[in-house]
Design a protein around this nucleic acid. Sequence first.
RNA 1: CGGAGUGUGGCUCAGCCUGGUAGAGCACCUCGUUCGGGACGAGGGGGUCGCAGGUUCAAAUCCUGCCACUCCGACCA
Length: 440
Amino acid sequence: MRLSRYFLPILRDTPKEAEIVSHRLMLRAGMIRQEAAGIYAFLPLGFRVLQKVCAIVREEQDRSGAIELLMPTIQSADLWRESGRYEAYGKEMLRIKDRHERDMLYGPTNEEMITAIFRAYVRSYKDLPLNLYHIQWKFRDEVRPRFGLMRGREFLMKDAYSFDLDFAGAKHAYNRMFVAYLRTFARMGLRSIPMVAESGPIGGNLSHEFIILADTGESEVFCDKEYLEFEVPGPDVDFEHIGRLQAIVDKWTSLYAATSEKHDVAAFEAIAPDKRVSARGIEVGHIFYFGTKYSEPMKAVVTGHDGVERPVHMGSYGIGPSRLVAAIIEASHDDAGIVWPEPVAPFKVMILNLKQGGADTDKACEELYSALNGKGIDTLYHDLDERPGAKFATADLIGVPWQILVGPRSLAEGKVELKRRVDGARELMTVADAIARLSA
RNA sequence: CGGAGUGUGGCUCAGCCUGGUAGAGCACCUCGUUCGGGACGAGGGGGUCGCAGGUUCAAAUCCUGCCACUCCGACCA
């Protein structure tokens, strides 16, 4: 992408409404624009990151055996009357009427709808286990939206729903998601810690929140420091193997980790003082087992081996990709701007032509640009007629992992400079070497 | 939902107290000089001062009502 042809509205001043660093940087980097309280448009750069995050979420959901579908944002109130939640949900649910005065709502979550889909088609234990997920916009009419994408009213959510014959099956489904979540966040450069959690209005009695530690986190969390060293399961983990999966979950739940709601002071103080972590955290995922809470009232039943019908055991599993974009920035930035972990970066490489219009620099940049594009590498070419300093500032702000500085100084030796955003390390090399290095 | 605050060119803000017909910096357009960490000069364009009423010869400024947004708290993915 040539910057001269792109839409990247960089802000030099920080808009006054933005209090936390991720919100500030997203506005300044031209990633998002607020349209109303807690409602944001994703501008091209922000949308690219959101899509990268979703792609990782999707890959790991698929790997764990979940199946993607897509449910609508607008739902019928009747469905929610079946579960009893239409009255129970309160003002957080955006209720609307269509032209026929029918009660509709903008979905805050999809347990009812997925249960209706399931019961319409599934009759037998032979069709289990089943885990269906989608990535769709949700709306929760928060009393006080704040912190930009961190607590918006409209937000993107990956929600998965598992169906099993009994608790044992449901536990395995829970474990699959548990492990998939560890992998998902790790791939985005985040260290997540599963913490015992309150199950809240979703209901149920087995629940973990996946928390990443950040000073600006909304919740107060407590855990054992050793979690920060734990190895995340690799891509070869066997999701079908009940025992091995359980072993991973057992390990990741063996030490103390809890949010303030579930905090047990005595248990926490039993940890060696130097191992205690008391910090702020951002919730990026939440998983629940809730048994037959919805399947019973909504009559989602399957026939078992014994020919007897019974309600399915369900769980639901949420990740907020739009919140994750903000969380990644909270975890990875410096004074100059965002520092994207490569897997979620909007572009992998940014070419900075330090002398736009110079015959040699233009030629080298064009060569780099077409070669990198040819290899399918996301490349942003800063080809505007700006001074070097301005280009450096822009590049650092939007946080692209690799910058190639092409200027007369290094070009005189036939070299360009490859700069790594994360630590500022620079290395002189030929154009050919730079291309080879970045396509490795 | 309780408390506090803010709405003035695209952005950050001054002007309001003490009414007199709207300003700065950045951004934008033109020209020139610059060019390795957010350049400089000259010229130029752009604002029903959140909305609606009221007071007044005169309202960004005073009064009333409304709307929007932000922050703290309670609540929550």
